[in-house]
Computed example of a mutant assay.
Amino acid sequence: MSTSATRPAPSTQTINVYDRLREDLLSGRLEPGRKLQMRFLTEAYQVGQTPLREALNRLTAEGLVDSHEQRGFYVTQISRSELEELTKTRCWVESLALRQAMAASTPQWEEALIVAHHRLSRTPRSLNAEQFEDNPEWERLHRTFHRTLIAQCGSKSLVAFCDQLADQLYRYRRLSIQKAFPGRHVADEHQAILNAALSGDADKAAALLTAHFTATAEVILKDKAIFADAPAG
């Protein structure tokens, strides 16, 4: 009997390997600059070359993978200039989305925002109180809070673009997260953004959101383990 009926369809295989590769790229398990050799990938992800190439092409379109003719695929390198550009762009577009969401505020949006913040605030950032151990649930709730902030903006395309920027910046944040954790009071920053959003003060809310994103970038830019030319201190 043929086994083809029991194998996942190519589209399903592509989706599965895309999701796994994307997670490994964003988390840093596949480090920036690494050559993505097809033999290694097919063995590591237990997938054929056709769905693998489809997944890699999709990740290339998202900016997480670079494709070089005759040389293959590579994990996109990180750079100081890209981090600065991505951060500046995210500040612009999410501030705009937040202003639009606040202008179209509804009791349902405010309630959803309060619930998202409550769940985030009650979840520990680290699984270990003595030393940093990343909490995946915090990361999920953190993304939900930021997405809820702009969900009422009235543009699915704008929200999708903000998500894409958040993903690209997540790669950078993962590289420096352990260093930033001890001295950063992120919970206070989230509370301040929430208060401004609920009070209807769009200028303050946008300024606090911008400061929140900029502070994250500054930690990364000053990390010599990531950028050797980072200023001392």
Rank of each mutant, 00 (worst) to 15 (best):
Q108G: 01
L194N: 07
D188G: 02
L158P: 11
V47A: 08
R173M: 03
S79V: 04
P32Y: 01
I220S: 05
Q49W: 14
T123M: 02
G154L: 13
S126K: 05
G183H: 07
P10Y: 12
A166I: 00
Y170I: 01
T60R: 10
R147D: 15
A101M: 10
L221C: 03
A166T: 04
P51I: 05
N135S: 02
S176G: 14
A211M: 10
T6V: 10
I193G: 04
Q191V: 15
N57L: 04
S81N: 11
R7A: 10
L158R: 01
M102T: 12
A217V: 07
P182E: 06
R174I: 00
V75G: 01
A97H: 03
A196T: 03
V65K: 03
L56H: 06
L41K: 07
S81D: 12
Q108C: 10
V219H: 15
S155W: 05
T214E: 15
T3Q: 15
L56R: 04
R7Y: 07
L64T: 10
Q191G: 08
H185I: 04
R173A: 02
A160Q: 10
T87E: 12
E111F: 15
E62H: 00
A215I: 02
A61M: 03
A151M: 10
S11E: 11
L221Y: 06
P10C: 03
M102Q: 13
D203T: 09
T42Y: 13
I220E: 05
P107H: 15
D167S: 02
Q46E: 15
E62I: 00
L141G: 07
I226G: 09
T42F: 06
